[in-house]
């Protein structure tokens, strides 16, 4: 089962500069474990304390995965997953 995952610039150090990699998994959690197997270190940049990091956005087929069940969101062959760091900050 192949799922295309778009990798943002800041995480391309884990994918040898690739903008897009292929992964597999029936849920987002499983996909991230699969990515970790091939791109060691990437999981820690996406997950913190067993949940998606607050300032990392993941989209499945154009939808924010937080509205699809987060890490439990179901994936299927041909889905497109996009990872984008939040653009955020502030004075404090």
């Amino acid at each position: 089962m192949a799922i295309e995952v778009r990798i943002p610039t800041i995480l391309r150090t884990y994918t040898a500069g690739e903008k897009s990699v292929s992964g597999a998994g029936g849920t987002l959690a499983a996909l991230i474990d699969d990515l970790e197997a091939n791109h060691a270190g990437i999981k820690d940049r996406l997950i913190d304390n067993g949940d998606l990091r607050r300032f990392v956005n993941v989209y499945v087929n154009d939808e924010d995965v937080r509205f699809l069940g987060g890490l439990e969101a179901e994936l299927k062959d041909g889905d497109q997953v996009v990872v984008l760091p939040a653009v955020a900050g502030g004075a404090r």
């Binding site: 956005n57 989209y59 154009d62 984008l84 653009v87 955020a88 502030g90 404090r92």
Partner: peptide
């Protein structure tokens, strides 16, 4: 971009706006 935080001390792009932008 709209500051989804609407705050004097924080800013954040709305996640859907961010996706559309990219």
């Amino acid at each position: 971009m709209v500051n989804a935080a609407g705050s004097p001390t924080f800013y954040e792009f709305d996640s859907t706006d961010l996706f559309q932008l990219y």
